[in-house]
Design a protein around this nucleic acid. Sequence first.
RNA 1: UGCCCGAUGGUGUAACUGGCAACACGUCUGACUCUGAAUCAGAAGAGUCUAGGUUCGAGUCCUAGUCGGGCAACCA
Length: 564
Amino acid sequence: MSTTKENSEERALNFVEALIEEDIKLGTYQGRVHTRFPPEPNGYLHIGHAKSICLNFGLAKKYGGKCNLRFDDTNPVTEEVEYVDSIKEDVRWLGFQWDAELYASDYFEQLYEWAEMLIREGKAYVDDQTPEEIGKQRTSPTEPGIESPYRRRSAEENLDLFRRMRAGEFPEGSRVLRARIDMNSPNMHLRDPIMYRILHKPHHRTGDKWCIYPMYDWAHGQSDFLEGITHSICTLEFEVHRPLYDWFLDQLATDDYRPKQREMARLNLNYTVMSKRKLMKLVKEGYVNGWDDPRMPTISGFRRRGYTPEAIRVFSDRIGVAKRENVIDTAFLEHCLREDLNKRSPRVMAVLNPLKVIITNYPDQNQEWLDAVNNPEDPEAGTRKVPFGKEIYIERDDFMEDPPKKFFRLAPGREVRLRYAYFITCREVIKDASGTITALHCTYDPDTKGGNAPDGRKVKATLHWVSADEGVEIEARLYDRLFLTSAPEDVAEGEDFTVNLNPDSLKVVKGVAEPSLKGAKPMDHFQFERLGYFNVDPDSNEDCLVFNRTVTLKDDWAKIAKKA
RNA sequence: UGCCCGAUGGUGUAACUGGCAACACGUCUGACUCUGAAUCAGAAGAGUCUAGGUUCGAGUCCUAGUCGGGCAACCA
């Protein structure tokens, strides 16, 4: 059940869909569509991965095909089960179910056999040189490469060496297996790329079984092939790998079936960073509180922040898929979020910067329970009762002693409405010795109960409020953007992106909320009227509910105030 | 002085085999409103990187440039 427009939107086909439809028409894969999401389990997924997830799983869904979740786990030095688990959780949370959970490591034996085959055919050889030597011989893209002295070893010798590599006879880094392709290719990836390296490291799935591990290029295309993938979508930087992807498959395939690799531009968002390395740095060096810190652009961060999978899916669909480099405005993500949250969030009143109001003409000890609408966007949501009394809290920002013309909230002598309650008029401002306002004395009009004046008089503002007696204390975590600049990675020579961190990206405040909030569960969404959307953080306990501000409401007054 | 991509309002994405550059976000107006929210209505903003060419007609085709990105990890 979706609360958004997500399945009803019409849009033009993107280039991947156009290709798939063409393949369906041509019968290239007998009408089959099979994609895969292939993360490396070396970090947490971010919103850029969400784009890929939505695309790959979305394509399978749209064309009645399948989508695998395949972990590209060919490098045991950086990969961990913690990451595998988080990735699975994130994909599921986004609302997708993979057809098969697979690992590149599932194919180690098959890859090994194919490697032996290439060796026997003279298409691969063992090189004993150091990484430096190999790199140097590749020279530069503008000049021909230099052949390795080991390039012409016999198949027998290569086979023997390769088997001994597998058997663990050689130290880490001492030898590699290389494909013999073309040292003069203008495409550097074809200058005898490395297929295997020796790594005496246990693998999170295969344990100590292997001490040689395949490189990405040798594992990825073959994994696609083994799984019957039809369309293998990746990002632009792999475009130059495509000839190699195709070359390997051409050596192995026994018929015409070939997965098609196609490349799209990755997602970039302004005011944040999106590389795993940088996100890792933020986590490891304590700039944020973990991968799921609500300020992080990780999927787990957005989840904890209160974003919904629906919003992310709609966002992902609307930003499109193309090859041009792009930077999406975070405001667009927030727009998709608000659109979803607006429809699903129960409204509630909470005051985050309380100012006491004493209603001088309200009977002492009196208390009333007033009707409040739960969600004006959803009549089914019904109503609830909120307690009202002689002493209440309003937002400190909703009062100005000396208001500018465009401010039409509470001010001395001015009348406003308390939402679902009464009209009140400010009569007196109470201050302490230092001059700070400590309370307001107001009077109310009993005839305006519920919020309407029988005489038809209007007020220009409606304020939210909370009963001083019945309100419950809450903690609110107010987030602002993590970075001050729209392109945090643009820094001066010698500087690091962390110089652009926003020191005020998190503000923790104590507030007070209406008692209906008692019993709210972690991850529940609410709209705090006039303030924004909030969700219950798992840090909440019996004594105190903790809320994350997911996103503010659009705020025209803030714009006006800023201009002035 | 290599190879591979890309270039359309501030941002993103469209424009079927050439036919008046469209949609969304953002911005600005206004209406409505018991959330300065939501909703609704409207406006401004590009002549499609440049220069030639083909054509009745070019964002789409051709040529030559320019600019941006990627590629020389035993990372993915």
